[in-house]
Design a protein around this nucleic acid. Structure first.
Lengths: 147, 147
DNA sequence: AAGATTTTGACAGTATGCTGATTATCAGTA
DNA sequence: TACTGATAATCAGCATACTGTCAAAATCTT
């Protein structure tokens, strides 16, 4: 017997599904999707990365992030500039428009997250974060500009 | 500032991503995907459901489960039979082949889950299950044959 | 019974997310 | 310098997952 309803894999998928749905509903008016918001959030921290670097930071597959950046460029959120030293690579930069959205979207993301996790206490949330980090697995650490 | 790396939504997505990858790797030799395994697990519990009932139980979108069942039928895992009372509906039944896979796949799923959650204690896992249930949100309860 | 509403499943369209192959370029080596 | 291997990004192909639309059939209402 396999009680799928009790399986952490299944529950993870369904919790993720609900989080995605809640967040999608809120950010769709900005023509954004949850992964696109993630990319924005990483680029707000640091701009001018290659697609491969962005792929490693966001843990989004190289081939997936290609199309994702295409759509974000089409929405005037970012642009690709040639890499000065490497003609194979592109550097990804946010547009003024993307920068201007930062305060509002940051606030919105916090609100939605609070609503999503309304059933959990602060210590629950901290424990959950740690457990999810554990499940996420060990990853290479990447040098940050400001260590 | 939005620290996306600490966001429960983001961590949920990445933990889910890793669980999916681990499980995929193991069940791909059965030509199965994680959602397809979920459908199997629900059908092992109860057979002969309509697509809509199955969609509600598995929390997989009506339109998504259509194609999913197509592919599973193509792999000789299930078949659709006409509903005796409702000519719009189909009843989904597992094949002998699907039934024969139950012991092996159940065992494999437990193994992979144990490996996935190796970093967590038993009480951690129980807490995590409860928190994920909370995040998953309240759902309608469906009558089961054996209440 | 006749008309309105709902439900079931299909289809089109779009976005993620992956594998595998390909092209262009870079870097190291004989 | 020419060859070899590695790397950056794209493309094709497939499987989820959702929205919206539709036809057929069931159900409710009058």
């Amino acid at each position: 017997m396999y009680d799928i309803e009790k399986s952490i894999g299944f529950l993870l998928a369904k919790a993720h599904q609900r989080g995605w749905a809640l967040f999608s509903e809120e950010i769709s008016r900005f023509d954004l999707t949850p992964p696109q918001f993630s990319v924005l959030a990483f680029l707000w921290q640091q701009d001018g990365l290659t697609q491969t670097e962005l792929s490693e930071k966001t843990q989004i597959d190289r081939t997936t992030i290609g199309g994702l950046l295409d759509r974000m460029a089409r929405s005037n959120l970012l642009e690709r500039r040639p890499h000065p030293q490497d003609r194979r690579a592109h550097l990804v930069y946010l547009t003024e428009h993307a920068w201007s959205l930062e305060p509002e979207l940051t606030c919105l993301a916090h609100e939605v997250l609070d609503r999503f996790t309304a059933g959990l206490s602060e210590s629950d949330k901290q424990q959950l974060r740690q457990m999810l980090e554990t499940l996420r697995g060990e990853r290479k650490t990447y040098a940050t500009t400001a260590a």
